[in-house]
Write a protein that binds this DNA or RNA. Sequence first.
DNA 1: TCAAAATTGATATACTATATCTTTTGATCG
DNA 2: CGATCAAAAGATATAGTATATCAATTTTGA
Lengths: 153, 153
Amino acid sequence: MSDVKTVTKSVEQKFADRGIRLTRRRRQVLDVLMSADAALSAYDIAELCNAGSESHMPTMSVYRILDLLQEEQFIHRLETANKYVSCSHIACAHEHSGSQFLICDGCRRVEEIQLSPEAVGAVEMAANAVGFASISPQLEVKGLCVDCQPERI
Amino acid sequence: MSDVKTVTKSVEQKFADRGIRLTRRRRQVLDVLMSADAALSAYDIAELCNAGSESHMPTMSVYRILDLLQEEQFIHRLETANKYVSCSHIACAHEHSGSQFLICDGCRRVEEIQLSPEAVGAVEMAANAVGFASISPQLEVKGLCVDCQPERI
DNA sequence: TCAAAATTGATATACTATATCTTTTGATCG
DNA sequence: CGATCAAAAGATATAGTATATCAATTTTGA
Ligand SMILES: [Zn+2]
Ligand SMILES: [Zn+2]
Ligand SMILES: [Zn+2]
Ligand SMILES: [Zn+2]
């Protein structure tokens, strides 16, 4: 169960490649998000940065850093929850063209998935039918994860 | 373009049928939402209730009333926007089994649609593939409405 | 070294939402 | 009708999320 991730060489490399500095503050925020097993609010993150550390992480800094990490797609903001998660693909070479999130109503765990092209197509179709275009691909869907579903015999 | 709706007989009848009182405050909130051409925040609603009226609508009341109207599906809350819209089906006999919303990034207009069963099925399929079940049906998708799309020649 | 740019610190304030307690209003029944 | 009880609204406090702004510090690179 304990599968705690933090900033690795491959993540450091992504920062370097894009000419973005991985400062102490940014590393703190990203480490907290990568270690978390659920989405966190900006205030949660500030608190966790401060826990067991003499440093003081101001919430403002957290927001600033979240903005940057989001732009670079190291993390994502869950708009239905006002919370943040690290990207599932943060350590791999995967590119995304829009992400979808499953959010467990039981344990708040978040799963980042890619919908099948057919699924995306079906949503686009429905949108086009009423004149909408340029659909943004971020979908957030609530449900129950495999651990939180009532047991079936 | 001006197609302002307010509480009608058929809406009044729905309240009566369900034993819910359509008080002055509730009517004010619902009228504001039905007249609006975009989603509104609770504070927007309070302000609009107060505009050109001697009465004072407290924000607390707005929230209380929004809760009720939502439970009865007269209105919906857009979770990605923290805003509220009146239900497209408020004046008809239509039942919904989950709604989907298209939100225009240009003008903030909101279109309430029903995805095709195939589209819903495709999303459910993707969720099941990673162990999620009991998917909630509310989807909010951002895009550009027909009026806000860059003109094509 | 020194000036410019990027990052962080500090403080204030706006926006969204809930909790709780009191007062008023409205339905019901004798 | 007037007493009673429940629903609704009023009032106030507070929690939670986010942005604006300006000053101080650190990093970069000429
Ligand atoms: Zn991602
Ligand atoms: Zn769960
Ligand atoms: Zn509806
Ligand atoms: Zn539009």
